[in-house]
Design a protein around this nucleic acid. Structure first.
Lengths: 251, 251
DNA sequence: GACATTTGTTCGTATATCGCACATTCTGGC
DNA sequence: GCCAGAATGTGCGATATACGAACAAATGTC
């Protein structure tokens, strides 16, 4: 690609959108400039463009994104076949086992939820399609990291700040890599309250016809209901059944 | 705003993203050019920029969005307080009445789901935060249209193609405006299988402290379980309770 | 296999954008 | 009410981008 095939203004605008997020609903021009590293004048032009197009509101002082911005993410969810194919299987799975079931893909060092069938909510975090979690401490993240080569997994781990969400969170890079290698061998990943106390989960990979892991599915359960040990006994079979049924349907 | 405060390249890039959607997961340069009205050269530059930034994949022929694009929509959902505030109330509501409960806001002539607590899935459509439905034939759409002035509601209706999803869909603009006026008076909207056969729903507005309708919540139920008539008898009170509890929490 | 058509790429130039420096307005403390 | 500090708005020259046309490559048709 020649450098004239790159639209700097577009790239900058996307960075401005991403500057909004958790705890940052309303940003001033100076805020955005600081968060993105863009010149104030440029940040201002991007924000005014967003506002002009209806993607943002401007009260003269602060900018806030409008629901119209959801069209962008929705372009992916409705355009990509994967979520639509998986959803009915998750519904049935969730119904059968009486727990929440989800599907996600890897985006850098994070997993992104693309479909979900939730039973009564047990987590404090509200997960929905588009939600993100760090891969290193989520069951789907572990199995997706395991589906990569050691080098690639290592690289993603080392660029993640290994925050201890609970006392159980695995934060040592070497232990983590060992765990990932074991997950690769056994073909599933179990997380026991590493992300949130009281919550454990088990995940397997969705492998397509060419043997590539295109996504992961998991079942999450309250730790109070059963030992982490029992997760595999109860849920591994139904998870694997779904994975097998889906295999021929995945590109 | 001076016209130099508008970044054309950014606006064009956003149009390119929106070109992807339902049944259009993979697009060639020429496809995007046709869909957006942009010059082929410009469309190409936008697509290559998206690909360079990791928002799209390129196989030499077709472009497809990647999950990274979900960061943009997620910037809104996680940044905006509204979904977070409403979600726990929807969970409780859905639990109490044993039906799915949702919340949405108006974006042009469409409603956009911002939170949802689903019981067993009854609709063929898979709704999730970010999903869109035409306002004119959805219960939340009707109550949100009613919360606008007649002129504004009229304008939005006239720019909507009034498609008859089912034999029950109201497609006459005049009848629709009458219905909306009645909804405004009675303070709730009932939809009886206008969007999908076998599904009915009832919605009320969420009004903030200053009296403005900032969102709507609804309860959807299978038509087989009860007459549309009974919706109000059973669900209006719990919906209104939630609206009352939420009122002081809304900006 | 040759022709017609569509699609992708390159190029020169007119034009719009960037980032800087300066002007202006806002904010909070005293 | 005044001042200092911060945030926002603006004009301008250098530079990057958009456009349309022309070219090249691929695709489809007969």
């Amino acid at each position: 690609m020649r450098d004239t095939d790159f639209i700097g203004g577009f790239a900058k605008g996307l960075r401005v959108i991403e500057a909004f997020g958790e705890n940052r609903p309303r940003l001033s021009i100076a805020d955005v400039s600081k968060l993105t590293g863009l010149d104030r004048a440029t940040a201002r032009r991007c924000l005014l463009t967003l506002s002009e197009l209806g993607y943002a509101d401007y009260d003269g002082k602060f900018f806030a994104l409008t629901p119209k911005i959801l069209r962008l993410g929705h372009a992916y969810l409705s355009a990509t076949p994967l979520p639509h194919i998986i959803q009915p299987f998750l519904d049935r799975l969730s119904d059968d086992v009486g727990q929440s079931a989800s599907a996600s893909v890897l985006d850098g060092a994070e997993i992104v939820y693309i479909a979900r069938a939730s039973q009564r909510r047990v987590m404090s975090i509200n997960l929905m399609p588009g939600s993100r979690l760090p891969a290193y401490c989520a069951s789907m993240g572990r199995i997706l990291l395991a589906s990569l080569g050691d080098d690639e997994a290592q690289a993603l781990i080392s660029q993640s700040p290994l925050h201890a969400f609970t006392p159980h969170t695995m934060t040592d890079p070497d232990l983590l890599m060992n765990e990932i290698r074991q997950v690769r061998v056994q073909g599933y990943a179990v997380i026991d309250q590493e992300l949130e106390l009281g919550l454990c989960s088990i995940a397997v990979a969705l492998v397509n016809g060419r043997g590539r892991a295109v996504a992961a599915i998991n079942i999450g359960a309250p730790a109070a209901q059963l030992e982490a040990q029992q997760l595999a006994e109860r849920y591994l079979r139904p998870l694997r059944e779904v994975a097998t049924q889906l295999r021929p349907l995945l590109a």
